[in-house]
Amino acid sequence: MSKLLEVKDLKVSFNTYNGEVQAVRGVSFDLNKGETLAIVGESGSGKSVTSTTLMGLLPKPHGFVKSGQILFEGEDLVKKSAKEMQEIRGNDIAMVFQDPMSSLNPTMKVGNQIMEGLIKHQNMNRADAKKKATELLELVGIPQPDVRMNQFPHQFSGGMRQRVVIAIALACNPKLLIADEPTTALDVTIQAQILELMKKVQEETNSALIFITHDLGVVANVADRVAVMYAGKVVEVGTVDDIFYNPKHPYTWGLLGSMPTLDSTDEELYAIPGSPPDLLNPPKGDAFAPRNKFALEIDTVMEPPMFKVSDTHYAATWLLHEDAPKIEPPESVKRRMQGFSKMEGEQ
């Protein structure tokens, strides 16, 4: 399969009054055409900063790329000028934001907002753009697209607004769609509709999708591959089955264990103690070590490299080193993994 996007050792920092905040500290991943990669992590793990950097939307001048490459179809986006990025944005890479209310212009008719990109990027005339915009509204499942074209964002419900945002993102047939928590603000029933829609649209347009979320249920639903981020680094990456049925990193165990399943009993949830580190002064060694009850001595001295588990599955934890003691995931996480396979059996 051909690589659409390759991110190589990307480092992004922000200058603040207190000093340099290292939000992204060496992230590498790649993405194939038509594939969905979910980036999971807590707030402050650098997942949103990674996506804004991909889009070239870092707030300048205090946010900057320290080093690394973003190869999109072989071209390094980091080196592009603001003007060149404007061409790419919307055309080749598009983004869906979390809050549909603040990503739409409240004083502009919905139809015009969709047509904007078409006219600018595809040099369409107004009549063609209007036709295309109506088609897009229909594609994303908005009833009566002709009428809805002339309405303002406040006349739409939250779910419908998010559909409009998706329509805008899809307008120029982007090769890569970045969705930053697109369903977090929505109800579960609406969320299910939007996820179904995004999958359908992706199938039809064969675009690649980067899906940023903290909801592991959503990840299980949409993703082909998953990258788990912690403190500005990717700590585990693998196919969706690797991550859910054979997780190797203690942080991933924690994430999986902290979600109740519908049949979990009165037992306590497996919570990760403490809170994420301050990236103003990132800790020496493994950033997760202070919260990790399986931490080894070496974790406080040296950062673990990515260990290979299988061809698709990598994890950055010293536990995978050949000299490390064999440690099993905590009971509740193991039970969860077994519980899943039991459910499979029933179906």
Partner: peptide
């Protein structure tokens, strides 16, 4: 029926 569960097979 709309709740997403952290289980790819189920999803």
């Amino acid at each position: 029926s709309a709740i997403p569960l952290p289980d790819p097979e189920y999803e």
